[in-house]
Design a binder for these strands. Structure first.
Lengths: 223, 223
DNA sequence: CGGTGGGTTGAGGTATTTCAAGGCTCGTGG
DNA sequence: CCACGAGCCTTGAAATACCTCAACCCACCG
């Protein structure tokens, strides 16, 4: 199940997406692959690396002592995750499907930010946009109904990963539930309701390919 | 009910707490007072100022169209709030009690950060600590029971505002409820249970002065 | 003194969870 | 090639944590 996590291969410098101003620095390492279900880093571990998803999908979450789980974000192709201001990760990150990531040493990054105000601004922007996502998610978790939560989730995923009108979700119902603060059954029921209302359709024989038929019907629910 | 919000008095430079490296810059304006219940700024308004609570308490929240409210944070003496990376506020902020704030122009701040890496780092640190708080709060809102939420709230307030063993809460039960994603009745019942268990005591004739009698009893609940 | 703004408590309702059963797909191994 | 189990999803029925509605209390204040 687990790949050998501790071997982070060094390599030649590359682009790191939004941090493209870093192209020619030595902080960047090469790509790395994780099998579906593999842990990329654990909560409270030293935050040595910053990651970018090249292909695949990642969930990051916190656990309560009795196993209750709250997923705070899904990271899709292009997304940067594991960016910490402190010394340790505050989440566990796992590959949802087979996933390729690129990584950079955090300390190098912090060191560069000291002198390069462009990079410093990028770090602030990324942290601020994580914060903004968290703020919206608090409203969802604290005050929205199950149907509203699922509608908001679908709109978010539609925005982030729809290709050719088809939303191919990488995550299972349990992941969605733990993201939305619900149970997997409640998520399933909500999707069934939206399906019955003609707001979405399922494609193929899997239940993870979704087509939004009535985006405004969803938007009404996303108060 | 509302004070004249649009007049922000200019004044001589002062310290702004954590941003103390800014002492000699012209970005800082003088103090300003808001009456209990007054709006300090509204969601989606231009984020012209950054605030620091001198005395009093502030709540910042988002509203759904039908009036459901999610308070994302309480700002107490010393706290900085209204710090946005974008152009507009993403929350409404209101004085919970009569409150004195100090304020700084955001644009000046951003301008200073361009050149002063110390200030830039402070901005990042503050944003990161807001993010950390939001991340913990997502776990609370998504996965904790009402008793656990109230216990966590009490521990947070104990840490932030207890003086001489007494926690004098500035906010009412409804505010606590909207912070914790509950109703005011549920908050009240949870406090009664903790009182009955001998974990906390009420002081005086008001129900807002709380003494923690058994902090470890609370910690057990704060999983 | 009456009204308003908290706060508590009870009774009943309900959205969501929990428990349980069943279906489908897919990989694996006899 | 088929049987089998594992993983995932859906759906129903029952349980429950929390919400809603309502009554009441107390302090404060004009």
């Amino acid at each position: 199940m687990f790949v050998n996590l501790n071997v982070k291969p060094a390599g030649r410098p590359r682009f790191l997406g939004e941090l493209s101003s870093l192209t020619q620095c030595e902080a960047l390492l090469s790509e790395f692959k994780y099998n579906r279900g593999a842990e990329i880093f654990g909560e409270a571990e030293p935050a040595d690396f910053v990651y970018q998803v090249i292909e695949g999908a990642v969930r990051s979450y916190k656990l309560l002592s009795d196993g209750r789980r709250q997923i705070n974000a899904f990271h899709l192709a292009g997304d940067i995750f594991g960016l910490e201001n402190g010394e340790t990760y505050r989440f566990t990150a796992e590959a949802i499907v087979d996933t390729t990531v690129r990584l950079a040493r955090r300390v190098s990054l912090a060191h560069i930010a000291e002198t390069d105000t462009m990079v410093a601004r990028h770090l602030l922007n990324m942290t601020a946009s994580n914060l903004q996502h968290a703020e919206n998610h608090m409203l969802l978790l604290g005050r929205k109904t199950s149907l509203e939560r699922v509608a908001a989730f679908l709109l978010e995923m539609d925005r982030r990963l729809t290709a050719a009108g088809i939303m191919a979700l990488p995550m299972c119902r349990r992941d969605i539930a733990d993201y939305l603060g619900l149970t997997l059954e409640t998520v399933s029921r909500a999707l069934s309701i939206l399906h019955a209302k003609g707001i979405l359709g399922f494609l193929g024989q899997t239940q993870r390919q979704i087509v939004l038929l009535d985006r405004s019907g969803l938007a009404e629910l996303d108060i």
